[in-house]
Simulated scan of single mutants.
Amino acid sequence: MTGNPLIDMHEVTKTYDTGPPVLAGLTLRVEAGEALAVLGPSGSGKSTLLNLIAGLDRPSAGSVTVDGVRVDELTETASAKYRRSRVGMVFQFFNLLDDLTVLDNVLLPAQLAGMPSTEAAARAAELLAHLGIDRHTRAHPGRLSGGERQRVAVARALMNRPRLLLADEPTGALDNVSGEDVRDLLRRLNADGQTIVLVTHDLALAESCATRTIELVDGRIARDVRAVAR
């Protein structure tokens, strides 16, 4: 592949107080359109990797560049703006606001970014229909199944058309049926061109969704495998 990658992490090290580094001189390039699954045992640095890409944490050494932005050099205010405009995030336990309706949860990132209300309403309607949850627009998240709540979380993450979707154990809190539902959804999003980086222990998720899989061991990339074209 040619050109600049969407994610470029160069010799990144992250340490916390005493003890060995969580990430140890890691270099990683992710191209636009890839679906990267990050595997590894607990403590291998998976969540730290995701947090550094999201600008939620800073490396102790090295650089993190995403979509041309030096994320490791951003102020807190600039980092928040970066996440609103360039990154969508999906979490294991959804992180939806139970006192808001499905629609209001999805609209929230647009409101924070200052998107005009008419444009935001149209975008939310498009996403809810595309993800098959438009019938739940006025419902509250607590009335939905786990798979439906994760679809709402994905819609919210995609609201501002981010270049990058980050997913932290997106099937970890779901039963088998709902997990398969979310796997199908992520596979479809990537087929439509969405770049995805997901941290998971779910091998079925990695095998079905990822175009590339890396395995972290002791803060280093121990394996980097590209999937056979589907």
Rank of each mutant, 00 (worst) to 15 (best):
I7C: 12
D8A: 13
G19P: 03
V22Q: 11
A24I: 00
L26W: 03
T27I: 02
A35Q: 01
A35G: 05
A37V: 00
G40A: 01
P41C: 15
S42D: 09
L49S: 13
L52E: 09
A54S: 10
G55D: 02
L56S: 13
L56G: 13
R58P: 11
S63Q: 07
T65L: 13
R70W: 13
L74G: 08
T75H: 07
T75F: 08
S79D: 05
A80N: 01
G88Q: 01
L100D: 07
V102P: 10
L103Y: 13
N105R: 02
L108S: 07
P109Q: 06
A110N: 03
A113D: 02
G114S: 10
M115I: 09
P116Y: 07
P116T: 00
A120R: 01
A122F: 07
L131H: 08
P141F: 11
P141M: 07
R143E: 12
G146T: 03
E148R: 02
R149W: 11
Q150A: 10
V152L: 10
V154D: 14
A155F: 03
R156Y: 10
L158G: 12
L158M: 13
R161P: 05
R161M: 09
L164S: 11
L166C: 08
A167K: 00
A167E: 00
A167H: 04
D168S: 05
E169L: 00
T171G: 03
S178Y: 04
D181F: 11
L185N: 07
L185H: 07
L189R: 07
N190C: 02
T195C: 06
T195N: 04
V199A: 04
L203A: 14
E207N: 14
S208W: 15
C209S: 08
A210R: 03
R212Y: 05
I214T: 06
L216N: 06
R220K: 14
V225F: 14
R226P: 13
A227V: 06
A227K: 03
V228H: 15
R230G: 15
R230K: 09
